[in-house]
Design a protein around this nucleic acid. Structure first.
Lengths: 119, 119
DNA sequence: AAATCATATGAATATTTATTCATATATATA
DNA sequence: TATATATATGAATAAATATTCATATGATTT
């Protein structure tokens, strides 16, 4: 029982292709990080929050109002965005104002939006 | 019971900010499409497949071998990538060769990789 | 035609996760 | 100090989904 048969029931893979691709494959650690970034961006509430923050910093309540969702739901998602260092915050009195932490995110979202819609 | 209280238990939101943000918010339909794209990209197996196809078209078996996963798992994920029009395929004999369908995806992934790792 | 091989796919299982609800924390105000 | 307000968070529930397993489909070869 060869190695290949453990995972792939095909007889012969195109070895040259596999080797070539393997030779300049990015580090799995980086691929994994990138996947995690996309995972964070793969939720409609979080993406909506990010687009909201494109224009202005906003407090939690503003965001909840804008997106017509509960404060709790928004707060939970902001926590995820914080964990991914996509947003940062500053406190002012009882309010907490969130804003984008990173220009890269702006670029990625803006470019992505271009891709899916032309605007 | 006002509208705000249905979703947000805060007394007063910053109305000017909410209105301003609302005024040039992208179409929800586009935001939703973008989220769906990120959702597809938010899985490690799929992202690994895409990076594999950066260099060369590959048949299902090649990909399974490269990523050390079962043919079935790869095939299921290729189906998702096909559905998102991220990959296309051509048949040759018994094999099916997959390749990237869209340069935008290349750009988005390459830029994303830059963001998470510097290489 | 029969056998073999490459790929696709339905069903089941297990895991992840988004939201809700209740409540805790922290700040401001009366 | 007591109360009200803004935000955060733990637990529970519901929904989504990645992989496995078994099997179907479709193409090639003998």
């Amino acid at each position: 029982m060869s190695d290949e048969n453990l995972v792939c029931n095909c007889k012969v893979v195109h070895k040259e292709i596999v080797d070539k691709v393997k030779s300049d494959y990015p580090r799995e650690e980086c691929v994994h990080s990138l996947t995690n970034l996309f995972k964070v961006l793969g939720d409609n509430t979080r993406v909506r929050i990010i687009f909201a923050l494109f224009n202005s910093e906003m407090c939690v309540c503003d965001i909840a109002e804008l997106l017509d969702m509960t404060q709790s739901a928004i707060s939970h998602q902001l926590r995820v965005l914080r964990g991914a260092r996509i947003v940062k915050y500053r406190k002012e009195g009882k309010s907490v104002f969130y804003s984008l932490d990173d220009d890269h995110i702006y670029d990625i979202l803006a470019r992505g939006l271009e891709h899916v819609c032309h605007e």
